[in-house]
Amino acid sequence: MHSESPGNIFIVDDDRYVLESVSILLRESGFSVTSFSSGHDAIRQFVTEPVDLILTDINMPGMTGIELLEKIRYLDRETPVLLMTAYADLDTAVRAIQKGAFDFIIKPYRPPYLIHAVEKGLTYKRLTNIEKNYKRELEKTVELRTSELNDALNKLTNMSGEIIERLTAAAELRDEDTGAHINRIGKYAQCLSSQLGLSASFTKNITVASAMHDVGKIGIPDSILLKPAALTAEEFNCIKQHTVIGEKILQGSSHAMLQMGAVIAATHHERWDGTGYPYGLKAEAIPMEGRLVMLADQYDALRNSRVYKPAFSHAKTCDILLNGDGRTLPEHFEPRVLDAFRESEKVFEEIFETSLAPSMEDDRA
């Protein structure tokens, strides 16, 4: 054992005979020993040369063994300190243990017992170092694995976002849209969510999930979706089904983004007064994400030209949303959402005006 891990020991004793005899005994037992006649010298050396164990007399002039123990414990909580005394003073022994002494040896000591106590202390220090190194390596491993997991999650999130973009583009491109419309809807919804003080996670999700509001249009026949003239009542009822189709495409997923997307697809044409579709939901029965995207989608539709109307200016669009024009009424929107739009309408204008390719889709529904 000693040849594999001899252990570096400090011995402190003002009695030169004891100091020399203990040093010789421990060196002959295979340990590396440095001896000191005062606690002050031992502390100065300990600061620059930490050791595996300290063996000190308890009754020394200048600095007692208890005082040395206290200073060692201030510098290091783990190095074992063995105290030696010529008197079996129980109170002193208890006080030493309370202050962090590893063991207590009574003089005159028996060599086998002293060697055993030293070996026990060195084993404790070795196991403590192993535990520290294990924890350190474990922390590094956890940090590395956490970093790898974060990278994987970021890649998964980016991939999920790309899949969502491609899925929505498949539907939007059938409607002669360049994709700018769905990007604007996300920014509008983000603006409203922030204005209302909704949670950061909700705001983050709706910014992406709102892009899926019209994904159900992929199930609408081109003859209706791309018709360059006014729709009949039957055709309009058909195009309304894009909400239900979109919900069916997205529902049942364990992914929070797709779950929100399913809700938005189903409810972004519901109105606060209950006159919307497909379910005729009213007021609080309409999920918040549906309320936000409904207004965002309505703003963008008014800003773009349709077969039944020209593109409106920002000012006229705001007037229609806030005051109504017969077809669109303030009662269609939750009052809080409408107030949030009123407070942030300049942001809406900036989003639309800075869009690289304003939408020219025939978003009749």
Rank of each mutant, 00 (worst) to 15 (best):
L90S: 09
S29K: 13
S38L: 01
I9N: 07
E78C: 06
P112W: 01
V337D: 00
K132Q: 14
D89Q: 11
A233W: 06
S223E: 15
R342S: 15
E28I: 01
L302K: 02
E345L: 04
H255M: 10
F10V: 03
A171K: 03
T232P: 09
D103P: 00
S344I: 01
I182R: 08
P287V: 00
A170F: 10
A96Y: 00
D103H: 11
R44S: 12
D319W: 01
I351Y: 13
I72W: 03
V293S: 07
F104L: 05
K346M: 04
T56G: 05
T267S: 10
A117H: 06
G324Q: 08
P335S: 05
A357I: 06
S253K: 04
D15W: 00
E28Y: 07
L68A: 02
S23E: 11
R327S: 13
G65I: 03
L225T: 08
I11P: 07
A357G: 09
K107P: 02
K346L: 07
H269D: 08
R77G: 09
S313W: 05
D175N: 15
V307E: 13
R110E: 14
L75M: 14
N237L: 09
G261V: 06
M1Q: 11
L90I: 11
A96M: 03
M63D: 05
Y299G: 05
L153H: 11
E20G: 12
R16V: 06
R174E: 03
K316Y: 13
I105G: 03
R271T: 05
C238R: 10
S147P: 04
I130E: 15
L69G: 03
T232M: 07
R110T: 06
I286N: 00
T56C: 13
L68H: 04
I43E: 05
E343K: 14
T34K: 12
I58V: 14
G252C: 06
I351R: 11
K155P: 00
N323D: 08
A230Q: 13
A96R: 02
D222S: 15
V142F: 13
D325E: 11
D214W: 09
D41T: 00
V208A: 09
E143M: 14
L192H: 10
R136V: 01
T232H: 09
D13W: 00
D319N: 08
L231I: 09
L26I: 09
V208K: 06
K316A: 10
H332S: 02
H268I: 01
L127N: 13
R271Q: 14
R306E: 10
R271G: 03
D300K: 03
Y109S: 04
I182H: 02
R73C: 04
E247C: 10
Q98T: 08
K346C: 03
N304P: 00
S3Y: 10
K71W: 11
V22N: 03
T123I: 02
S21W: 08
E343M: 13
S193R: 07
G219A: 14
A169S: 14
G121M: 07
D91P: 01
D325N: 15
M84P: 01
A311F: 11
E70P: 04
A171S: 14
E270W: 01
R271M: 10
Y134S: 02
L321V: 14
R44D: 15
D52I: 04
P287Q: 03
P287H: 00
A265I: 05
R303H: 03
I130H: 15
S38G: 01
